[in-house]
Simulated scan of single mutants.
Amino acid sequence: MNKLASKKVLIVVTSFDEVKSTGIKTGTWIEEFATPYYLLTDKGIEVTIASPNGGKAPIDPKSAKPEFSTAAVKRFYSDKVAQKRLDQTVKLNEVHAKDYDAVFYPGGHGPMWDLPENPLSIHLIASFYEAGKPVALVCHAPAALKNVKDKSGEPLIKGKQVAGYSNSEETAGQTTAETPFLLEDMLKEKGANYVKGEDWHPFVVASGNLITGQNPASAEAVAEKIIAALADKR
């Protein structure tokens, strides 16, 4: 019997689609959604996709370019069912941590703009974490941790090892104008023990039930850590 088949994972994506000051279109970096989505669903795990506004979740158009394509991205773009699910996301106010075994946030620049200040997302992350359930975020998505507090009122990430898109990657990619703040700087300011690997290479760290990955290449390893954590829970 596949004990993962009874597990449920909530995937939270951004609703933000354009940096108004630059006119640059943004959204979810599709590799960071597609890779974990298939790793989870192929194991029989039930996935729900939610966003702040519900409905069609924007995909960063740059992430759909051929040079960023992966096997999972190609599979997504030939998978009408998966595409429809990203077009019909559930509203964040309709999901509750108690109904799921883990939560996962894919990145892209979009999540940096609408998730850090979103009270529903903040509450969700805190609820999952306090319940001892895996809370996983990759690349720019750890921005969603900015205003999450622990039970004592301290930043949730204070004193924890946290990975996320590095300043050097942001600078090399010439994308600093697409961000409201530099993720690495924010994580350090909130008291996290920011850790990173080599630029563009997979790097994932777990601090208790908080799982964070550095960049798009880390999405697979983040999903594998979610699966391992779920497999450990009876």
Rank of each mutant, 00 (worst) to 15 (best):
V12F: 11
V13Y: 13
V13N: 05
V13S: 04
V19T: 03
G23Q: 06
W29F: 03
A34T: 05
P36G: 11
L39M: 14
L39I: 04
T41W: 08
K43N: 11
A50G: 12
P52R: 00
N53M: 06
G54V: 04
D60P: 14
K62Y: 14
P66W: 03
Y77G: 10
V81T: 12
V95L: 09
K98F: 05
Y105K: 07
P106R: 07
P111G: 10
P111A: 05
P116G: 06
N118M: 07
I122D: 01
F128P: 03
P134W: 00
V135C: 07
A136I: 05
P142E: 05
A144Q: 09
L145Y: 12
V148N: 12
S152Q: 15
S152G: 11
L156W: 09
Q161N: 15
A163S: 14
S168P: 09
E170D: 13
G173H: 02
P180E: 08
F181V: 00
L182K: 13
L183V: 00
E184P: 01
K188P: 02
E189M: 11
Y194H: 05
V195K: 11
P202M: 06
V205T: 15
A206M: 12
A206H: 08
S207K: 01
N209Q: 11
L210P: 15
G213A: 09
P216Q: 02
A221F: 12
V222F: 04
E224S: 09
I226V: 13
I227H: 03
A228T: 10
A231N: 11
K233V: 15
